[in-house]
Every structure is written in structure tokens, then in C-alpha cells.
Design a protein around this nucleic acid. Structure first.
Lengths: 237, 237
DNA sequence: CGACAAGTTGAAATCTCTCAATGCCTGTGG
DNA sequence: CCACAGGCATTGAGAGATTTCAACTTGTCG
């Protein structure tokens, strides 16, 4: 393969150049010749809340970067139930599992709130990866992150009670979605009770009771999808 | 980088050439020039039962392929408990997480039975990966396998009862370790009760009771580390 | 044989699940 | 404006499963 050498004249701007997550993106640095491949067929997509980006079982269409909003990755089981496997925040890459694997998506990706996603089509992504192995290395790094997260979840499930795990999950959500409001931090959870239950791994009734118990203990205060905690030493991204 | 072209005279035999898992190995195919790198510093190591290959927290020393036996990957928690995260059978690659991530091992690797492991030292592995991006792609594929396994475990924990999960785990173990003996399949489990309990995610006492219940139901018959099931349609690798 | 680890059993407390009923919220149609 | 359907969420109650701690048994290895 012949790599284009950058010249002042021929240089195409990197399509992710304006992205807030350009640093740390899997798409940079790459061979100059690949920039035009990316720039050409790069695609930005707006999703409304509840809109599906890809369905479980679909053939992989490419690699997606979340640039705004929040995407939920779920698997649906034969009996109609589903498990919420992951929340993908801005800066995260999704669809890379099936991209690397050349197979079908094992999860459904659905926007929880209005979101924006940048897509690199499969064929183009493959071309860029071939020319720029660094991209593959960075995708592998994302895999490693995913492995770490999943293992942390397995360990948490094995070693902590449901109530603790709910409290931990809430703290993570509050870090992301909370805002200081006087003496308290207030967060509007982006999840339905059902989804939150899936995340903890209990049925919704049990979640409801866990929330009731946590509320009674006083640290967390719930009202619908809103949670409040005292403002003390909690970093709110 | 200049790639050696293979010639009848200069060709070094691939060090994994004799390995039962040569096909499907992450180390093949590679650039001919990398073969001598591999061949030079390749290292084969025999482990006794219970011997440690690497400790949790150690810096990554390289990439390991299990060629015989069985390696357990565990994490140790602050409170002294531990979780058995994975059983690595012959043909599997371990240590790639920390290799890709350039970090420390998050798990301890310990032989459950006498085992053999082939090692490619970190520096050499890096060299080969740079010259042969295909290796990286194959490591990424192993990552994807790992992600799939972990997700399957998360889903199983969330959707099936402990008893079911124990039965499923036993069937997998029997597939690997069982031997047909007349009307029954007999397997000697390579795991202590404690490890088996870790794998299911319950304390040993609960495991003991689960085993008791499964035994009473009649399909499985236990005696110490041996399990027997009726021989019917079960593939025994 | 004896000591120590591993595994099992007992019993009470706690937690969770299931299923059914009720409450809450929202959007629609009269 | 109101009533009401439909979906989500909570609550109740009983059955079932799990945890914990302690006592006891079994197995193993010197």
C-alpha cells in the first residue's frame, strides 16, 4: 500500500478534528492517506430518545462513536426479558465488538436521551485499519476497557449485596448526571426503573423495595427519576 | 521495516510449529522475519499443580499460551476473599489483557493441574506485533471472545438461578473432563469446592447445599470431586 | 495416629422472588 | 374540562432461596 505524504496542498482535514473527543479517539493518529477515506464517508447521525441505532442480530455496519447523549446496549433473551449491559457515554466507541469479530451485533443499541453518533462504515473502517494498525491497537485498548468493566461487574455481583450495588450504581449515575443545587446534589436518572433493575440484576419489584430501603436510610432521597444526595465531596464531572 | 523474504535456506522453523494449537494460534501467520524473533526467545514452562504463573499486580511479562493442563485466573480482594474469573484451557492465550494495556496483571494465574505454558516475552511480542499487525488482530479477536464470555456470565447471573447455573457449569466441566464409563460419564472436577463456589458466585456452604439438591434430583451423582451423569448425548471433547 | 484443612450440616435471620392488586402519570377522545 | 385507557411503578403477602455462624465430619498429609 502506498501512503499519501501530507502536503500543505493535498491535506484533507480530519473529520473528527472538531470533535470534543478528538484526543483519545481511536481514529487518530492515522496515516495521512486514510484521512480522506474517513473524511469521505464519515457520517454523523442524530438520534431521538428511544431511537434504535442497531438491533441485536443485525450485521455490523461499522464503528460508532458516541459524541452526545447516552446510548444503552441491551441484550434481549428468548423469554422476552432483557439485560442492560452497558451505558455508552460521549467519547465511547460502540459496535467494535462485532466489527472486530466480523459478525452480528449481540446487543441492541438504543438512545436513552437525544444523542449524536458518528459512524464510520464497515468497509471504510476496514480500509483505515489496514493502513493504520494503530487504530487496531486503540480498538484493542477499548476491548481491554470493556473486559475490565465486565470483570468489575462480575466481581461486584459476586461480592456485594444488591443494596450496595444499587448504591454504587446510583453514585456513578449521580457523578455523571448530577448537579449541585445548594446543599444537595440533584440528578435526573436517564433510566427507567426497569433499566435500573436490569443493571443491578433484579426484577423491578425488588428494585423498588431496594430504593425504598435506601430512601429510609436517609442518604439518598428519591422522587420519580430524580435522586438527591447531600453535597459533600462528590465530584460531579 | 524490512521484511525477510522466506528462502529455503534462511527459513527458521516456527517455534509453535509442533504445537497442537498451531492452527488458530495468535502467532501465525506472521512475517517471515518475525519467525526468528519468536524462535529465539520463545520459552516453554512446566507448572506443577498449584504453581503460580503470575501474581495479581505483577507487571506484564509477556503473552502466555496454555498448551497443556489448566490455568485458573483469580482476583484477590482486599478482604481476603477471591473470585475465580476464568479457566484457561489448552489453546487459550492469557496475559494478553495486561500486554495490550501495558499495565499490571489484574488477576493471578495459577495452575490447577500440572500444566505447560509457552511464553513470548513482552519485548519480543511487541516486536512481532509491530511487524505483523495480523497478530494484533488475532489478539483483538481473543479479547472479543473474552468479552462474549464475560457478558454471557453476566447475563447468566442475572437470569438464571444458582442451581441452574451450577448445573450448566457442571455440564461444561463434564464436557471437558468427562469420560464415558459404561452407562455413565464420569468426570473428576479440577476444582475445589471453594473454587466451584467462586465460579457460581455463592459461598461454599450454599454450594454444598446446591450440590446436595442436585444430587437428590438424580441426574448428577457426586462423590468428592467426582461427578457422574447418565451417558446420553453428551459430547465429551 | 494426630493435626489441620476442606467440606458438610444445622438453624435462625434475612433477603428475594412471584403474582396479584393498587397507585400514579400521561395523552387521547368525548 | 373531564374521564379513562394504558403503561410504568409501587406495595402486599406468602413461598422459597440464600446467608451467616457455629458445630461437626471427612479427608489429607506428615
Amino acid at each position: 500500500m502506498i501512503h499519501d505524504r501530507p502536503t500543505a496542498a493535498s491535506q484533507t482535514p480530519h473529520p473528527c478534528g472538531q470533535c470534543q473527543f478528538y484526543e483519545g479517539s481511536v481514529w487518530t493518529p492515522i496515516e495521512p492517506g486514510s484521512v480522506s477515506v474517513l473524511a469521505g464517508r464519515f457520517h454523523r447521525r442524530e438520534l431521538e430518545a428511544d431511537q434504535v441505532l442497531f438491533e441485536q442480530g443485525d450485521a455490523n455496519q461499522g464503528v460508532f462513536c458516541v459524541s452526545r447523549g447516552l446510548i444503552a446496549l441491551r441484550t434481549h433473551h428468548a423469554d422476552g426479558t432483557s439485560t442492560l449491559l452497558k451505558l455508552a457515554y460521549p467519547g465511547e466507541v460502540i459496535g467494535f465488538r462485532s466489527f472486530l469479530d466480523n459478525g452480528n451485533h449481540k446487543t441492541e443499541a438504543r438512545a436513552l436521551i437525544p444523542s449524536r453518533v458518528c459512524t464510520v462504515a464497515r468497509r471504510d473502517a476496514e480500509r483505515v485499519v489496514r493502513a493504520s494498525p494503530g487504530v487496531l491497537a486503540r480498538l484493542a485498548a477499548r476491548c481491554v476497557d470493556e473486559i475490565d468493566r465486565n470483570q468489575a461487574r462480575i466481581i461486584a455481583t459476586a461480592t456485594t449485596s444488591n443494596k450496595e450495588r444499587l448504591a454504587d450504581t446510583l453514585m456513578e449515575l449521580i457523578e455523571r448526571h448530577g448537579e449541585v443545587d445548594g446543599e444537595v446534589i440533584r440528578a435526573r436518572l436517564p433510566l427507567s426503573r426497569k433499566d435500573l433493575a436490569d443493571l443491578i440484576g433484579v426484577p423491578p419489584e425488588t428494585l423498588s423495595r431496594l430504593i425504598g430501603r435506601l430512601g429510609k436510610e436517609g442518604f439518598f432521597a428519591f422522587s420519580g427519576r430524580e435522586v438527591r444526595i447531600p453535597a459533600e465531596g462528590v465530584r460531579t464531572a
